[in-house]
């Protein structure tokens, strides 16, 4: 079993997009967090986390996403979660994540 994963990411101007994998757990969450922090350090002002491939999310993964939101706020950047599946939206709402982030 691989203990490292690669998260695709792309940057266009001040907008950076990070693509979450099919399972958002501790490992993939931490990888997303690291990638997002890198983008923020590189000057991104708009951070998009794309969930189009994400089928299942666990609570540890969600807690790490909150860390991403904090980091973006501190850097004065906006965070957008895009292409989130309906079931995942429900989960984010349950845990209060949607109060801190824009969904589209």
């Amino acid at each position: 079993m691989n203990t490292t994963i690669t998260i695709p990411a792309q940057t266009a101007g001040e907008t950076a997009t990070v693509f979450a994998g099919d399972y958002l757990n501790k490992l993939s969450g931490e990888t997303i967090e690291r990638e997002c922090k890198r983008k923020l350090e590189a000057g991104a002002k708009r951070l998009i986390v794309n969930f189009s491939e994400t089928e299942i999310v666990n609570s540890i993964g969600v807690s790490i996403l909150l860390g991403v939101i904090d980091a973006a706020n501190n850097a004065g950047a906006e965070v957008i979660f895009s292409d989130v599946k309906e079931e995942t939206v429900e989960l984010f709402e349950m845990l209060g994540l949607t109060n801190h982030v824009t969904l589209n």
Partner: peptide
Amino acid sequence: PKAINQIKTALVEACI
């Protein structure tokens, strides 16, 4: 499908 996703997520949480 929605119920299945809920079941899967709850199961994952129980395992964690």
